[in-house]
Design a binder for these strands. Structure first.
Length: 313
RNA sequence: GACCUAGUAGCCAAGCAGUAAGGCAGCGGUCUGCAAAACCGCUAUACGCGAGUGCAAUUCUCGCCUAGGUCU
C-alpha cells in the first residue's frame, strides 16, 4: 500500500485525447491532474490552447506577458505533486510539453542558472559565427559537445554562453562569499525519485491530422478570433506576450494586420499544428519508458486502465 | 464563333534555346531555463498533347486539348 510515491504521466502529441483520458483516470483512481503544457499556463489564452478541464494544476498561473519557463514549471509542479500526494491522492501529469515533463521526472542540471537578460540582449545582435567564437573561447568543451544543428541555433548558443559565464562567476566568488553566489535560494530543486508510470497516446499521422484539422475548425467556431481581439485590447501584443509564439495565436497576426484572410490563417494554422505534432513525436519517441497506446484501437482506454490499475494498487 | 492569356512535381511558382531556382506541404532529426520555441537534415528526371525548324526546344513556329478572360 505504498502509493505515496507514485506519479502517473500521460503524454503524446497534440489532439490525441490526453486530457479526456486524464480526467477519466483521475476519477477512477482518485487522482488530480497537473497540466504539462507550456501554453495553458497563460491566463486568457483559453480557446487556442484547449483548456477543456479547469480543475487542473498549473493552468492559468501566469499572465500572457510573463516569460514562463521550465524552471518555473518545475518549481510549481513539484509543489503540486507533493500537495496531492500528501492528501493521499494520485498526481497525474497530463501534457505534450516533453521538456517540462522531463524537468519534473529527471531534473535539469543547469536549472540554477537563471537567464541573464542583459547578456542575452547583448548577444542578440551577434551573428552565429560570432556566438560560436565566444562560446568556443569561454567553454570549448561545451562547444565540442554540441552537434551541427545546435551549433547553428542562436538560442542554444546563447544559453550555453550564459551557463559558461555563470560557472566562471561561481568559481570566482564561491570560495570567499558563498552567500553572494546566486543571490537567490535557488528554490532547493531536488528530485525525490518517484515511482513513475508513463502512458503515451499516439496515432498514425493520417488520422491525427484529421483530428487536428477538425479541432482547429472547432476552435474557430468557439470564437478564437474574439479571444485574441480581447487580449490585444487588454494591451498584450504579438511581441510582448505569448501571443507571438503560441500556435493557434501567432498565425492570426497577419490577419489582424490585414495581410491575410481568415482562410489562409486557418490553413497555415493546421499545417503548423501538424508540424508540432511531428516534433512532439520525435521527442517522445526517444523516451524509453513510455507505454504507448494507439487511440484508434477500439478499447485502448480499457487497456490503459488495466495498465494503470496493475501499477497503482 | 473570333481573339487574348495561361498550362512546369501534391499545391504555389521562377526560368529559358544547351535537359530546370525557390516556397509550401510531406518525412527524419537536435534538445538540460524562451520548448506550441529555436535549429538542422532529407525528399520529386515535374516543363499539357502532337508535329515542325534548329547541332540542340521546357524555351521558337504550327495544330490540337484544357482553363481563365475579352468580343460579336
Amino acid at each position: 500500500m505504498n502509493n505515496m510515491n507514485k506519479l502517473l504521466i500521460i503524454c503524446g502529441p497534440t489532439a490525441t485525447g490526453k486530457t479526456k483520458l486524464g480526467i477519466d483516470l483521475a476519477k477512477k483512481f482518485n487522482g488530480e491532474i497537473i497540466s504539462a503544457d507550456s501554453r495553458q499556463v497563460y491566463r486568457g489564452m483559453d480557446i487556442g490552447t484547449g483548456k477543456d478541464d479547469l480543475k487542473t494544476w498549473l493552468i492559468d498561473v501566469a499572465k500572457p506577458d510573463f516569460r514562463f519557463n521550465v524552471a518555473d514549471y518545475k518549481k510549481y509542479a513539484d509543489i503540486a505533486i507533493e500537495d496531492i500526494l500528501s492528501r493521499n491522492k494520485l498526481p497525474i501529469i497530463v501534457g505534450g510539453t516533453g521538456f517540462y515533463i522531463k524537468a519534473v521526472t529527471e531534473g535539469i542540471e543547469t536549472i540554477g542558472v537563471e537567464p541573464d537578460w542583459e547578456l542575452r540582449a547583448k548577444l542578440a545582435n551577434y551573428r552565429i559565427n560570432e556566438l560560436r567564437i565566444v562560446l568556443e573561447k569561454i567553454d570549448p568543451k561545451r562547444w565540442q559537445k554540441m552537434n551541427e544543428s545546435d551549433r547553428q541555433n542562436p538560442r542554444r548558443l546563447v544559453r550555453a554562453i550564459e551557463i559558461a559565464q555563470n560557472k566562471k562567476q561561481n568559481t570566482k566568488y564561491l570560495p570567499c562569499s558563498p552567500r553572494g553566489v546566486a543571490g537567490r535560494p535557488a528554490g532547493k530543486i531536488q528530485n525525490t525519485k518517484k515511482d513513475t508510470l508513463f502512458i503515451g497516446l499516439t496515432s498514425p499521422y493520417k488520422f491525427l491530422y484529421q483530428r487536428i484539422d477538425r479541432r482547429v475548425e472547432a476552435r474557430v467556431e468557439a470564437g478564437l478570433e474574439e479571444e485574441i481581439r480581447s487580449l490585444l485590447k487588454k494591451g498584450y501584443t504579438w511581441e510582448n506576450s505569448a501571443l507571438g509564439t503560441t500556435l493557434a495565436y501567432n498565425e492570426w497576426r497577419p490577419y489582424f494586420e490585414n495581410q491575410k484572410n481568415k482562410e489562409e490563417v486557418i490553413k497555415k494554422w493546421k499545417f503548423d499544428e501538424h508540424g508540432y505534432a511531428r516534433r512532439q513525436m520525435t521527442w517522445f519517441r526517444k523516451q524509453p519508458k513510455i507505454n504507448w497506446f494507439d487511440i484508434n484501437k477500439q478499447n485502448f482506454q480499457e487497456e490503459v486502465e488495466k495498465k494503470v490499475g496493475n501499477w497503482y494498487s
